[in-house]
Nucleic acid binder design. Structure first.
Lengths: 285, 285
DNA sequence: GCACATTATAGATGGCATCTATGATAGACC
DNA sequence: GGTCTATCATAGATGCCATCTATAATGTGC
């Protein structure tokens, strides 16, 4: 069964020239894209590319598919755009990164003009927001900026990822903490965090395999649990709040740039986005 | 993200006039189709149908989507057909129902002419074979015939579903068995069986909740286990074999028609299908 | 033949399409 | 006007498969 995503992978390989770049442009890993192309070939019973480590070339069967695949994808995009455009009609559809403080969103919403319906918020992880932007399902997003040339961006601030502990925690007085010191610390898993894999790798590489007393996708819940002393966690600096202390973790030098993304540079000047940007302040150092 | 299957559901509703028939024509359950249409509407941010319990009508947004959806599906089908047709090239691609005796397939293959590559066999469950036929990924199938008007059919024989027990089993001498007598019998689960749900319902409805010492997707393995006395099972009459006794189960009057399906009536006359049909004999009563 | 870039394989995981079972609703019928 | 019947929606469980990370294989260029 040929499915849309398979054709997207196929076209991405053609447009990007190799599997790895194609994977990046589809926001999936390289093995995923490889498997997808293989599945498409199996579906059709025909090889579509001749691969070498240097270059990827279309076979005859592949060449025959290109035009059709482009037509299909164009129709899909058109359908999505039509519905999206019809829907927009003065309304700002805004994506909000899940690992972003609720306070920002709450303050923004609280300050909105009374006449409702002007803004539509969509919370999601980084990749989901990028996908939605690409499909035209949202107009802009408050998320991580990575210099993707497909979108207009406005960086608001940069922050490091830090260790979050209860203010009552014995180690909270320390200025710098190392993974090895945290062997016996229960750790709360913030499932939506874009750096979850990296974090887990950091600890396991140092022989630290903590117990996980909680796994949540809500930062607010995670913060409450950390403050209550259930465990510690790693989070962006802006995660901090009452009863929670943020401390640097040794050899863990990850940062993120938070900003606004939009498919159209003009949109970045939207008054509501301006207001949102004003409300999003860098956390006190 | 609009996906192909969503558009198929959408078009099926239009073509069939209501959700239930549309679901049947897509080989999915009615709730699945309902959820699919709902998801498509959410994706587009627009209602596509106005529903009542009597009739389903397109909204304006729905009407705008129809032509585009048809073009997309037509292109997909065309792509599949092209590849399939190119592939066929004299080769017969034949689907074989999983719950069909291995013997039939084995005899058929053994009797094939030496020049290989003339036949390609695909084993699968009923729905998978129907899907493949629909997509043109196989040319014909030896499977259950239900009078689907989309396919040309040739019924070969009909058989009941019976209880299978080891020949050494104390109950094997009985001519008719009731579910209630089987309370303490371990039961082997033939996972691929098209009647699995019905069978399980039959027993649970009578308060019989057997222990399952084995769950398998291979009838050959299931037969070996039954013969070895590990447990009993319910299967089509043709499941029987050495060391296994088939007995009717009281109040369990299910039958199936086995036959050949093909998208094209002319194909049913294919000499290899004739030979297959000859080899597939009804089991001795 | 080594180094590097690229694709394929392996194994695990999670999300979601799918299922069955049941509920809600409303026209039809006597 | 109740009861029946056809229809779509909801609930909860299940299994498949797209996806991930980690690692191996492969081939090209110097």
């Amino acid at each position: 069964m040929i499915d849309r995503y398979l054709l997207r992978y196929f076209l991405a390989v053609i447009d990007q020239g190799n599997f790895s770049r194609a994977a990046a442009s589809c926001n999936v890993s390289q093995p995923t894209l490889s498997a997808g192309v293989a599945k498409l070939e199996a579906s059709l019973g025909r090889q579509l590319f001749t691969r070498s480590n240097r270059r990827v070339a279309l076979t005859e069967a592949g060449a025959r598919l290109v035009a059709r695949a482009r037509r299909i994808e164009a129709e899909f995009l058109q359908a999505e755009r039509e519905a999206g455009a019809a829907r927009a009609a003065g309304r700002l559809r805004l994506g909000i990164l899940s690992s972003t403080p609720t306070r920002w969103t709450a303050d923004f919403v609280a300050a909105l003009p009374r006449d409702a319906g002007e803004v539509e918020l969509v919370e999601g992880r980084e990749r989901e927001l990028i996908d939605r932007l690409t499909r035209g399902r949202i107009d802009a997003a408050l998320t991580i900026v990575r210099g993707n040339p497909r979108f207009a961006a406005r960086v608001l601030f940069e922050e490091p990822y830090l260790l979050a502990l209860s203010a009552a925690h014995p180690l909270s007085a320390r200025e710098l903490l190392a993974a090895e010191e945290l062997v016996d610390e229960p750790m709360i898993v913030r499932r939506q965090c874009e750096l979850l894999g990296e974090t887990s790798r950091h600890f396991t590489a140092r022989g630290v395999r903590p117990f996980f007393p909680a796994r949540t996708t809500s930062d607010d819940r995670a913060r409450a649990l950390v403050a209550a002393g259930l465990g510690i966690t790693v989070a962006p600096a802006s995660f901090g709040g009452e009863g929670v202390v943020m401390r640097p973790l040794a050899e863990f030098d990850h940062r993120r740039e938070i900003g606004l993304l939009a498919s159209d540079a003009a949109l970045l000047a939207h008054p509501l986005l301006e207001r949102l940007a004003d409300g999003v302040a860098a956390p006190a150092p």
